[in-house]
Amino acid sequence: MARSRQSNDWGFPRWRGYEAGREAQNVRLCDRVGCEAVGDCPAPKSPNSPERWFFCQTHAGEYNRGWDYFAGLNKEEAAARAADERRDNSGYSESAHYSWAGSGDGTRSADEMRALEVLGLEVDVDFAAIKKAWRVRAKEVHPDVKPGDKDAAKEFHRLQLAYDVLRNAEDRRQWRPGS
């Protein structure tokens, strides 16, 4: 009867050396002259070219800061390319608008639109005007100004909620990455 041969790679302790069976890894270095870091970030050598540079993260960031998408194009070609990009990517901006199911250009949510209606403001108003309108309206119906008036208290509560919605939206816009 033939006896099966067991591997030395079972159980603990391992009966072979840890270095056995480990081949060298091929690592691509950064294409920046003099850099010894791993080049794992591909970057195009020129617009519409399949050839790529491979940079480390530091040099990829440096490369991207100086990248000109319209390099080598005259004004008409650059305008045509920008128009093509807007046309091809317009579905993405429309989808941002429709995801909120609100009116306007898609920069405000439905809750923000309702809050602007409560304050009696237009859609394209800036936050300074929102704050000013809220203060003026809140001073008219504040419970300290009209004590015991239930309707004024309800109106003040509506104004306060509308302002909170708009203030929170403004805070999110200010802290959004990339803006």
Rank of each mutant, 00 (worst) to 15 (best):
G39N: 05
L73N: 04
E94P: 01
R32W: 04
A79N: 11
E140D: 02
A37G: 10
G72K: 08
L29G: 03
C30K: 13
R52N: 12
D144G: 14
S93C: 00
S49L: 11
W67H: 06
A24K: 15
E76D: 07
P13C: 00
D126K: 15
D40T: 13
L73I: 05
Y63M: 07
G21C: 04
P50L: 04
C35T: 02
W10T: 06
R16P: 00
G72Y: 10
D111A: 14
G34F: 02
D84I: 13
K75H: 10
G11Y: 06
R52V: 11
E122V: 07
D68K: 14
L116C: 01
G34N: 00
G61I: 04
T107Y: 00
F70Q: 15
G66I: 11
T107Q: 09
D126I: 01
V38N: 06
E19L: 14
W53D: 11
G39Y: 06
F55V: 08
E36G: 07
R137Y: 09
F54K: 02
A24W: 12
P42F: 14
R86S: 04
A20S: 05
A101T: 11
A133F: 10
K132W: 11
V27R: 12
A101K: 05
P42L: 15
S93F: 12
H59N: 10
V141P: 01
